[in-house]
Design a protein around this nucleic acid. Structure first.
Lengths: 155, 155
DNA sequence: TATTGTTATACTCTATAACTATA
DNA sequence: TATAGTTATAGAGTATAACAATA
């Protein structure tokens, strides 16, 4: 329903009652995720990476040999839509496809040295950005928040 | 990066290390919002409403006379993309555009009786669905969660 | 017979430019 | 000169169908 940052121009808007939305977990979680993710999106754009690219890069770096099918499942991206992304990331020399050791249909994905380096750097920077973006929270609150969020979607 | 429910088919996937994503507030907030919102999306599809349509309907019902520009700002939807949505909702007889009392350029949006009725019903049902979708949380935890999320995005 | 990866393609969502009527 | 609402259109993201190769 919504999107990124530099969108709606300023205006004098009087009080709008948004309580019917703000009482919902789904709405608040979405707003909060957008707030944080937009900051990260803007930062990693300097590496010519999108959120989805970074997610793929991190998962491949931490899971050498992961298959396209597994990425598809974890990130909830349809296999056909993953192909172009992987091609691009491979063409940039960040990952490479190697034959899967036991399954002849599958390809194992591996980060290159360059890809591992970029993954480590961005992971660190993103972690720092997250702390700053959630600076209104104490470390304890941040841990509590993540725990409660995971109680919702982890089954 | 992701989307709705009936997406990726099942598979036997061994252990994937997702800790680099699961330590991030943005990632967890996104996953949790998707978990809850997808349930709501599926339910309100029976009223032929999308999440964005319901958001508009609720805001109009609770803010008689709200302008398109204000909706655009609150929901972070670009004005051109709002036009078609409002046309559709108006065509269904749920809202109507009336001349703005003081600003000749603007139109005030008002829920019809039918629209108010649908807003009240869906708001109630969505509230119940949210409770069920977050049933792993106590009422206190749910309140805490919303408070922490709002500390992030409210400025 | 089912699954992995892929191509082609349709569909939906989001963004930009430009116009009008009014402030 | 700026803003509200609108049109037209471009671009990005997400979806389905179908195929070859392998399990």
């Amino acid at each position: 329903m919504t999107a990124s940052s530099p969108r709606t121009p300023p205006q004098a808007l009087q009080q709008i009652d948004t309580s019917s939305l703000e009482s919902l977990v789904g709405y608040n979680a979405r707003r909060a995720s957008m707030f944080v993710v937009d900051i990260i999106r803007e930062h990693i754009a300097s590496y010519d990476l999108r959120i989805v690219d970074l997610s793929i890069l991190l998962l491949v770096a931490h899971n050498p040999g992961i298959t396209s099918r597994q990425l598809s499942s974890v990130l909830d991206i349809l296999p056909p839509n993953l192909v172009g992304m992987l091609n691009m990331i491979e063409k940039r020399g960040l990952i490479e496809r190697k034959p899967h050791p036991v399954d002849g249909r599958a390809m194992g994905l591996h980060a290159t040295d360059s890809g591992s380096e970029l993954a480590a750097q961005t992971e660190s920077e993103v972690g720092q950005l997250e702390i700053e973006a959630t600076s209104h929270l104490t470390a304890t609150e941040r841990k509590t928040l993540i725990r409660l969020l995971q109680k919702i979607y982890r089954r």
